[in-house]
Amino acid sequence: MGISASLAAGRIVALSPDDETPIDLKRPAVAAVLSWLVPGLGQLYQGRRQKGVLFMVSLLTIFVVGLWLGGGRVVYASWKPGEKRWAFLCQAGIGAAAIPALLQSWRLEGAAKQPVLLSSFMVPPLSRGQPVSQAYATELARVDPDIEPEDFRPLPPWRQFRPFPPPGMLDRTPADQLSVWHKQLGRFFEIGTLYTMLAGMLNALVIYDAFSGPMHPAPRDEKKEKR
């Protein structure tokens, strides 16, 4: 449908700030949801191809680079007391790319006590004393060089990760998995977190653009200018 037909049909349009040509926003709410799911997808749906591709490539690139720099560990959702991952609120702005983190957190802390496919991708770090399934405990001890099978004690029907030692006994193992990740990754944990957070936050602007078109500069106040 052309712009004049869109106007005639009462469709919502925005004006380009550059040459004031109308932009057909189609169904803005649908476009906004699409842009949240995949950056730029809402713009593609509206037929604004160049902007859609530009947003998609730039935001997904910094999200993936951030995830890679952080060794795949920096995007996870955790709401355990004392281990709340506030950064995820920003990372979630990137949409579908961050959804596996929610799924993994829900599965690990739910009845199954193990992530999907036993994969440690976007899984929150284990805290001291956390119960997990036997299968996940075996898998972690197999794939993670910093975790030994002895780090899990029987807690039928689960296995407990690094339980607190009895009073008076010294414990030299790191308290939780997050400390190990920080030690392994050093500054890249923070850099990866920053990249993925910024990708999610910038996508808020992209969602706004899909919903209401490009932002216009504030109108000039002629009275003030005359003074």
Partner: peptide
């Protein structure tokens, strides 16, 4: 630097339509 570049691209593209 890449973050500044991407932020500049997104800010510019959300304020304009013409390439």
């Amino acid at each position: 630097l890449p973050l500044v570049l991407v932020a500049a691209v997104v800010f510019a593209a959300t304020h304009h339509e013409d390439p």
